[in-house]
Nucleic acid binder design. Structure first.
Lengths: 145, 145
DNA sequence: GACGTGCTTGCATTTTTATTCGCCAACATG
DNA sequence: CATGTTGGCGAATAAAAATGCAAGCACGTC
């Protein structure tokens, strides 16, 4: 179980059902076979940018941030990690920011980038060759991390 | 100092400067001449629907909810309080929801309502006569509270 | 004026969340 | 193989936030 997988599980959980506390998440994840402590959840939540909203009925619920419309250029800080994978890079972004990052890269592509494919919090960057990966990775980290 | 005034001050404070903790708010309000304890801040925050966002830089900041585009009809729970004032009603809503409530009321006006005027978190409802206030108030509370 | 009701608040405390610390595993380097 | 170095984790703890409770106040009613 990588942190990334667990974070996906957390996102799934909070969108599927109301989650009031981090302890709820510990329990919910356990039911899905993921063992973690509250401390780790707290760190995951920080990474994901999740927050605890007060609801009109007086209860609370963890929620994912709404995606603000972002003009390309103000995407600094959106990228969390960049990892090479043969002639590709897997760029992990904050939740919902992947397409903003991908658009920014499309509009100003680093040398060696052939194309991008954006999911929700991941951008797959296709490279001309695996040789470029370190250089491109460095550039992406410089521009968007 | 009414709760309403204090809540306005809180909103002003968190939009003007980064606020990391409720204690920051206690201090900030004190500088503006408002004395409160953390307990009250916590309750105000709950009423206002504010939440503490993790920022990309690892810090936190209290923020007001973004206003979702709301189709009239799903405005239940937006209203916090309704108070009569001569031939008017002052309808306090969750932050940014006032116009949604006003639109909903315009589209389906309770008997006796002449018109509405929406601010940010307040709707002023103009009545045909002060006589109607209790009836209209009850209806608004039933529909939107 | 005495009494009741409904709000609001602070205090004290509990509950929840964030962080510090040390440990372990994976990986690189000599 | 020894020796960093890095990242991630849990346990414990510190810090922050939520809440039960009782007191105070404004208002209305008898």
């Amino acid at each position: 179980m990588t942190p990334r997988q667990r974070e996906r599980a957390i996102l799934a959980l909070i969108t599927e059902q109301p989650v009031e506390t981090q302890q709820d998440l510990v329990v919910g994840l356990e039911e899905r076979g993921v063992e973690v402590t509250q401390a780790t959840i707290s760190r995951d939540i920080k990474r994901l940018g999740l927050f605890k909203r007060p609801l009109p009925d007086g209860r609370y619920r963890y929620a994912a941030p709404e995606v603000p419309k972002t003009s390309p250029g103000e995407v600094g800080g959106f990228v969390i990690a960049v990892e090479p994978a043969s002639a590709m890079l897997v760029v992990k972004t904050r939740v919902g920011r992947a397409s903003a990052v991908a658009i920014a890269m499309d509009e100003n592509p680093p040398a060696g980038v052939v194309g991008t494919l954006a999911g929700d919090d991941t951008v797959l960057v296709l490279l001309a060759s695996a040789q470029d990966s370190q250089k491109v990775r460095a550039e992406i980290e410089r521009s968007y991390l």
